[in-house]
């Protein structure tokens, strides 16, 4: 007797409302409008009102919000690089260079944050792009290797040459003008970058970048100078990565070697992989899961880094989809089991 168990397979169907909404902007009911808008508007609204309740949630958690935005920006920058096919293991490079440029401008010339933060962001992005320029001609893991190496080396460089305050760093920098600036500047920057990147990657410009990721030779034989496009992409990523460095410098009123710390490399990376690579919303979501979690686990000290590493390995090997893709799928599709005949 050969009695085989009945086999089932999971079948996924798009919700009717999704099929109708996609690409066709003829929405017929409030329900459909809500269906489309809710996942976009709700998180944005939450983010915008969160600082208003500072008296209820307490300043500590408002501070966590600022750090979360900084990490989210770094992971957005990581995801942007990943969508051109460049793997960065050293987001701390962008953060640190942005921080040091801002800090030293403020320290040397006593310029206010309104000038040093934009200058630091721009200057930091330029320096990072120049540093990474030679590697862009190569394919493969070279970019990862060099981004991993550079922050460590720059840290050593500052330590040995004792420039820019050496191991002590530069302290007593100008504080930010008000609490509202501290809270709303990172939030707005994050939203602008998030929706900007999401838009840009689907524009024709973004298609070229995605093409470089999939097959750089075919892009090249399409009469497109891929090195120039890669340079632009790295500059944009460096811009978005340097801003949190520049901002946090004035936020902490201090810049020092911790700006190149491993945390700024591995946290954004973990956030991006956990959230889901390639969506920009995923990495942001990942940062909003990881950073508050990591505040809760503050008591564990360096074990947190081990914890990130474990999450990274598990996500990369076992759950490459990421949280965001999972939620999106659940939102847009029915699942049911069907008998396999």
């Amino acid at each position: 007797m050969n009695k085989e168990p009945i086999k089932f397979r999971k079948e996924r169907l798009d919700r009717g409302i999704k099929a109708r909404c996609e690409d066709i902007f003829a929405l017929s009911s409030y329900r459909e409008i809500l269906y489309l808008l809710l996942p976009r508007v709700l998180p944005v609204a939450l983010l915008l009102v969160f600082p208003l309740f500072k008296d209820i949630v307490g300043l500590y958690w408002e501070k966590v919000l600022v750090i979360t935005c900084a990490i989210a920006l770094l992971s957005l920058s990581w995801d942007w690089l990943a969508s051109v096919g460049l793997i960065s293991l050293g987001q701390a490079l962008f953060f640190g260079v942005g921080a040091y440029v801002t800090g030293s401008l403020n320290y040397a010339f006593k310029w206010p944050p309104l000038i040093t933060i934009p200058l630091g962001t721009l200057g930091g992005a330029l320096i990072c792009t120049l540093l990474l320029l030679p590697v862009l001609r190569l394919r493969g893991v070279y970019f990862a290797i060099v981004t991993l190496t550079l922050p460590l080396l720059l840290m050593r460089f500052i330590e040995t040459t004792k420039i820019l305050g050496g191991t002590e760093g530069l302290s007593a920098l100008t504080p930010l003008p008000s609490l509202w600036v501290e809270l709303y500047v990172p939030v707005f920057t994050l939203l602008i970058c998030l929706f900007g990147f999401r838009r840009l990657i689907n524009e024709d410009y973004g298609l070229v970048l995605q093409g470089i990721r999939d097959n750089d030779r075919a892009v090249m034989s399409g009469a497109i100078n891929i090195y120039w496009f890669k340079t632009q992409a790295v500059f944009l990523a460096a811009l978005v990565g340097s801003f949190p460095g520049a901002f946090m410098t004035h936020y902490y009123q201090f810049v020092g070697m911790p700006a190149f710390a491993l945390d700024y490399s591995i946290l954004p990376l973990t956030a991006a992989v956990l959230g889901g690579v390639g969506t920009f919303a995923g990495p942001t979501l990942g940062a909003f899961i990881l950073v508050p979690l990591s505040e809760v686990l503050r008591a564990f000290g360096t074990l947190r880094v081990v914890f990130y590493s474990a999450i990274l390995i598990i996500c990369v090997v076992g759950l490459p989809e990421g949280v965001f893709h999972y939620i999106r799928r659940k939102y847009h599709q029915f699942e049911r089991m069907v008998e396999v005949g």
Binding site: D204, L207, V208, Q210, G211, D214, N215, R217, A218, V219, G222, I224
Partner: peptide, 14 residues
């Protein structure tokens, strides 16, 4: 080796 994640006509946009 096309641009796998793009649709056929978007392959030509590049």
């Amino acid at each position: 080796k096309p641009f796998y994640q793009l649709s056929a006509f978007k392959n030509l946009i590049i």
